[in-house]
Structures are given as structure tokens and as C-alpha cells.
Write a protein that binds this DNA or RNA. Structure first.
Lengths: 232, 232
DNA sequence: CGAACCGTTTGATTCAGATCAAAAGTCCGC
DNA sequence: GCGGACTTTTGATCTGAATCAAACGGTTCG
């Protein structure tokens, strides 16, 4: 892999504390691959061969049942996905595809498991990572079961707004179709949900969103750190 | 704690492989407590002081937002809960209450974290446990986002039917109100959902359920190991 | 026994969100 | 600039599920 990308990977919480030799070892057997947009990376039900690290680009995790499909998460650099399947040596529960042109680092699953056995610091980091991911899923499920779709959109906007500098505007990082299924609704409904948020100061211009009545929007959204704050 | 309960706790995957001395250590500082039904055990937002082990009885995990409440999981003996919060030294994301009279083993969080640092086998078990829990949450979210409430009920019945011996009948382990919110619907709707499953061979007599047309029910439910099978 | 209470069921109605259909933008290559 | 394909929006309608309301069993207890 290119030397300028190494530090970014090494800085991931998951790898930051492990022994230098072990990190080297992983990078030796890993390989970095380029993918065009909309390439199918993994399929639910397949055995987990590689830990994936999004170095560049964006990846969508999604799941299928009957003939419905839903977005489960959108992964931005630099971050790993499907760690749990790798550690359990189990099949994937979700599928993944690139959303944009991406570079993905593929680390063979057995090497991850092997070094996990030998490197206590790495084991600690894995536990922290898994705990965070578990808690993220709990939050997603609470979000889905306890809120209406307008509330989910409102909270999503507030969250992005904060992440993007809290200056009264934000840019949607994905197309609206994906955002819709991520929030558990249809594209048509997302459009209408934006409409109902108009009186709360939400104005839409393509992917550019302006929030002019933050207080009103928060009153509607009732954000809760136990559901929305990634840090808790 | 009572000596006859120790083996059951020790046999948990989480504790089975750890060093005997370390298990002793945990049991020294742990204490077993009895609770009547409907006792509030933990509250979301509070710091995680103890790892909880349900030794006997049943515990409901639930979450609240706005003034809605939803059941997130029902814990049966012998099993732990809120491991992730303990390992992250974070606040609870869910609340818990006893459903029946229960005995709960409380293990101080710092002791868990301490021994996790020193016992590699315990660390491995923790990783396995967290992975399983993460994947359970993924399944719950898929179940919730991709299925209708009738489908969720049908799959729940098929699952319980298998767990209870697959002899054409099963007994609901919880009251119907709790089952309803566990499945993400209202009690009224659960009642109607049982009604719509009538033509598929589902007959209800209080908590006793008989399934007389398993094939038809499966055709409707379309169970999927990647959503329903706890083993995957 | 009968009153009060709780969980469940049934019925009528409302509402959120999905679906179906079509118009309006938007992007892109020729 | 124009045609075509795709995304987004808008409109009309339908459906699944929630809500509101009341009836129906059980159970407990005075």
C-alpha cells in the first residue's frame, strides 16, 4: 500500500496501540484495492475472509430480505467494517458496496484473529471497537423503534449539522435515495419529510441544507445523547 | 453466592475459559441479590457499575424516548447483560427491570475490566460475546426494518417453536403486552396479528399457541438464518 | 358473592408511511 | 443544444399500524 496512507490506518483506534511489529505483519499480508463506484464488495451469507478498511471513498452497508433492501450504515474513511464476522469466523450479516470510487484495504481474517491472540493491546482495542459498534447498533434500533420518520430526519440533520461545523448549513453526504433507506423510509417520503420540516427552518437546495431555526428543530427532534451522540 | 449456582455461572461462555483464580476473584467481589417482579434494576443514562448476570428469573431490557417505551430484549438465565457499557466504562443505553422474581449476580465493573487486562482467555471470551451481541443487534435491526409486524410475529413463533421442541405447540414466555413491544407493535396490533395468522394454522389459547400448518406459516414468514438463527 | 382491577380482545377511526403514477429537474454524452 | 437516463419532487390513493374507546374474561380481595 502507498506509504502516505499508512499513518491514517495506523491512527485508527483499532490499530493505534498494537505492537509495531504486529502492525507491520498485518500490512505485509494486506492489500489495498481500488474500486469504481457501485461495486459490490461483500454479500451477506458469504464467509468473512477479510477485515475491510475504507481508506478512501465511501461504502454502504445494506441488508436484504424478501425483495426489500435497506441501508444499515454508511462508512466513511478511515474506518473498518465487518469486524465481528471476522472475529467469529462467521458469515457476513450485511452486504457492502462502494458508493463512490474507493480504496479499500483488505486484511486477511485469519491474520487478524492470529494477532489478536498474541497482542494484548490489540485485543483491548478490539474490545473497545466492538463495544462501540454494539452500542451504535443499540442506538440505531432505538432510533428506529421509538421515533417517527420525520423525527429521525430531524435528528439526522442536527447531527450532520454539528459534525459539519454547526454554522447553520450542511451538505448531505449521500444521495437522497440512500439517505431515505438509511433513515428507514422511501425516497418519496423523505421528500415529504423535508417538506414538513420547512416550518422548522429547514430549507433544501439539492444536497445543500440550511437550518434557520435550530431551536424549533431541536424542540421537534428532541435529540437524546443516548440515541444520537456517537461519543456515548 | 450459593454454591449450587456457581457451576451455572462458570459454564457461561464468557467465564468458561478464564483462569480459575480469576473466576474466584470475581466471585469474591460479586454478590447475588434477589429481586421481586417488576423491580427497576438499571436506568439508561446511569454509569455502568456492575456487570449483571441473570442467574434465575427473567429480565427485560427496554429503552425510552419522548414518552414512548420499547422492549429491546428479554434475558433468560443464565446470561449476562450490559457487557459493552461495563467495558467502555460508559453509561447504560438501556434500562432493565425484572419480569419475574429473579436472582441477579452483580459483578463490579472495575473488576471485570481489571481481569480482562490480565487474562487473555477471558479477553478472548469477551470478544466472542461482544461479537455475538453485536450480530444479534444487527439481526434485530434487519428484522425491524425489512419485515412487517405480521412477518415478525410469524418468525418469532417459528423460532420459539423450534426452541421449545418443535412439537407443534409452544408457550409464550412473556405476557402479550411485552411481546408486542418486543416485536415493535402495540398490544392491540399483536392481537390482530394473531388473528391474521389464523389461516396459517396459528391458534391461540392464552399463552398456549398451536401451530398446525407449519409449511404455510413458513411460506409467509420466509425465515432467514441471517436474521433469525441465533447460531449464525 | 360481587366489586375492582388487570390483561386481552374487538370495533371504529385516524394517521403515518408505502405505493403507484407522472411531472420536473439534473446530469452527461454525443 | 438535444436526447436519454436517472434522481427528486409532487399528486392521488391505499394499506399497515396506532389510537381511541369499549367490551370481555380472568383474578384478587374485601
Amino acid at each position: 500500500m502507498r506509504s502516505e496512507d499508512l499513518p491514517a490506518v495506523r491512527d485508527l483506534d483499532l490499530f493505534a496501540d498494537m505492537e509495531p511489529g504486529h502492525f507491520e505483519e498485518l500490512m505485509q499480508v494486506a492489500y489495498l484495492q481500488r474500486f469504481p463506484p457501485q461495486v459490490h464488495l461483500i454479500t451477506e451469507g458469504d464467509p468473512a475472509d477479510f477485515l475491510h478498511v475504507v481508506v478512501d471513498g465511501t461504502v454502504e452497508l445494506f441488508a436484504t430480505a424478501n425483495n426489500r433492501e435497506t441501508t444499515m450504515a454508511v462508512i466513511n474513511p478511515v474506518a473498518t467494517f465487518i469486524l465481528a464476522a471476522v472475529l467469529k469466523d462467521a458469515v457476513y450479516l450485511m452486504s457492502a458496496r462502494t458508493m463512490t470510487a474507493s480504496r479499500i484495504l483488505l486484511i486477511p481474517a485469519e491474520n487478524i484473529r492470529d494477532i489478536f491472540e498474541r497482542d494484548a493491546a490489540f485485543a483491548r482495542s478490539i474490545v473497545q471497537e466492538l463495544s462501540v459498534r454494539y452500542r451504535d447498533m443499540v442506538k440505531l434500533l432505538k432510533n428506529q423503534k421509538l421515533r417517527t420518520s420525520v423525527e429521525r430526519l430531524a435528528n439526522y440533520l442536527l447531527h450532520e449539522h454539528t459534525c459539519q461545523g454547526a454554522n447553520g448549513a450542511l451538505t448531505l453526504p449521500t444521495d437522497k435515495r440512500t439517505l431515505a433507506t438509511l433513515l428507514g423510509m422511501t425516497p418519496e417520503n423523505l421528500s415529504r419529510a423535508f417538506g414538513t420540516l420547512g416550518p422548522y427552518g429547514v430549507s433544501v437546495d439539492g444536497a445543500r441544507i440550511a437550518l434557520s431555526k435550530l431551536n424549533d428543530l431541536e424542540t421537534l427532534a428532541k435529540p437524546n445523547p443516548l440515541t444520537d451522540d456517537p461519543a456515548t
